[in-house]
């Protein structure tokens, strides 16, 4: 089996840990627990003809005072940037994360997730998605609306990333 290192980065409290928990354990909790350092999970991602063992690194969310520790990005085969669709600044910071990824792991495919879509009306969420697509659509492999709470978009994100990592 092929193993791949996948990292999740983004601002603090954007729902990275919840996103992984939904994907790996199919669970969700409203309680916010800040990740310290890094938390690693593992899940096999089944594609059409093969299975990828994903070692998913949930990296402590960045803040203005304490940016993301870029050491953990080294060697990652794929990357998921998570932003909170209800917090504009987390979307604005995507550019910084893309710069960091470009510096450290330029060949890694990147998926952008606008998490917490369940907190907005469909039409509003789609409008924001369109704006983000216009801004970053050419830079990343794909952009998804997601919800760790409802599970919407979670499987698709990891599936698309696994597919991108092998092609």
């Amino acid at each position: 089996m092929i193993s791949k290192k996948i990292i999740l980065i983004g601002d603090f409290a954007t729902g990275k840990t919840s996103f992984i928990r939904r994907y790996v354990d199919n669970q969700f909790s409203d309680t916010y627990l800040s990740t310290i350092g890094v938390k690693i999970s593992r899940k096999n991602i089944a594609l059409e003809h093969e299975t990828v063992q994903g070692l998913i690194w949930d990296i402590e969310g960045g803040t203005e005072i304490k940016p993301v520790n870029t050491t953990y990005l080294t060697g990652a085969h794929g990357c998921i940037i998570v932003a909170d669709i209800t917090r504009e600044e987390t979307i604005e910071h995507i550019a910084n994360y893309l710069k960091t990824i470009g510096d450290i792991i330029p060949s890694a495919p990147v998926i952008l997730v606008l998490n917490k879509r369940d907190m907005l009306e469909n039409i509003t969420a789609k409008n924001i998605l369109e704006q983000v697509k216009q801004q970053y659509g050419q830079t990343v492999n794909d952009i998804y609306l997601g919800s760790a709470k409802s599970g919407s978009g979670v499987e698709e994100v990891f599936y698309t990333l696994a597919h991108s990592m092998l092609t």
């Binding site: 290192k5 350092g37 690693i40 593992r42 070692l55 690194w57 050491t71």
Partner: peptide, 17 residues
């Protein structure tokens, strides 16, 4: 062992950093 290797790697990276 895969998880242990990853965690050990993360710890090592953290301390080295």
């Amino acid at each position: 062992p895969q998880m242990v290797a990853s965690m050990a790697s993360a710890i090592k990276d953290f301390i080295n950093d």
